[in-house]
């Protein structure tokens, strides 16, 4: 009987001791957490997509509180939600241009030359390691939908021309497709400059045109007709300066393109079931 009492007593004493330590620690060592954090996390989309550059929504909410980011840093959320967060925090919503994934290739089944048929498991990367797939162009889209499989936002699907189409409204610019593409064809680009080079062939002239009807043959007309500072020719391809160029949107560069490799893309990149436009046609101007 005595044993039971003494052990119960020791346990109770220990409990009391630790309880006191914990209570004191809570009293003196507490780090106050901003009560707004939880509210903001609730307001964010909760996708944890990482498009803002933070590892997830709660990390982004923390940077909102310490002023490291503005609410518009979240490109996935809609403008009303962004304004709501800005109002709640009493900060400026900021301006953030929506970015989307764009494909630097327009050589679908109807445009690019096929030299062989790939048979094996359905994966662009597998085709790429097996003598480069069946396409004549070694740099173009292989059309086996690796990007579609990794997209968690249902923003990508293959069109009937064998090219992945990005639904700009659903695209969160998370960059998963950029990682997945074995040919490095995707790039996250701002939507406010609709100029887009839809080709990645580092060849010029006949060599490029022999591979694909919408290939860039490095004639440099776009660079000459564009406003100064916007386009530079690098490695037989026009490179558009999206970062430093601060002028207005300007479609001149597309006017004289003989193959249609440079395009004016306002919304989705490819019309479904339609082959890419040819001959510098300008749409929605």
């Amino acid at each position: 009987m005595e044993n039971i009492l003494s052990s119960a007593g020791i346990m109770a004493g220990l409990g009391l001791l630790f309880g006191t330590v914990l209570a004191l620690a809570y009293r003196f060592l507490r780090v106050p957490e901003d009560p707004r954090l939880e509210v903001i996390i609730d307001m964010l989309p909760g996708n944890n997509c990482g498009a803002c550059g933070q590892p997830g929504c709660s990390a982004f909410a923390e940077t909102l509180l310490d002023g490291g980011n503005l609410p518009s840093g979240c490109t996935v959320s809609n403008p009303e939600k962004i304004d709501e967060i800005a109002g709640f925090l009493g900060v400026d919503a900021g301006e953030q241009v929506k970015r989307v994934a764009r494909l630097h290739c327009a050589g679908g089944l109807a445009q690019a030359k096929q030299v062989a048929a790939y048979s094996g498991f359905e994966s662009c990367r597998a085709a790429a390691v097996t003598s480069g797939g069946g396409k004549g162009c070694s740099w173009g889209c292989l059309g086996l939908a690796d990007c579609v499989r990794v997209c968690t936002f249902d923003a990508l699907h293959m069109n009937t021309n064998g090219l992945p189409t990005v639904t700009t409204q659903k695209c969160t610019a998370c960059g998963d497709c950029v990682e997945a593409c074995p040919k490095d064809l995707f790039e996250l680009l701002p939507m406010d400059q609709p100029l887009l080079v839809q080709c990645s062939i580092p060849l010029g002239g006949e060599e490029a045109r022999a591979l694909c009807t919408v290939a860039c043959d490095a004639c440099e007309r776009c660079a000459r007709y564009a406003r100064p500072g916007l386009i530079e020719m690098k490695n037989n391809l026009p490179v558009i300066d999206y970062v430093h160029y601060e002028g207005p949107e300007c479609p001149e560069a597309t006017f004289r393109c003989p193959t249609g490799a440079i395009q004016w893309v306002v919304e989705d990149q490819f019309e479904d079931s339609e082959p890419a436009n040819r001959g510098g046609h300008v749409e929605r101007l």
């Binding site: 094996g120 498991f121 994966s123 990367r125 390691v129 074995p182």
Partner: peptide
């Protein structure tokens, strides 16, 4: 296609 799967993954690793 075990060998091909490993090869594909190695190519992804190299690209990364």
């Amino acid at each position: 296609p075990i060998s091909q799967l490993i090869k594909v993954a190695r190519s992804a690793m190299a690209q990364r």
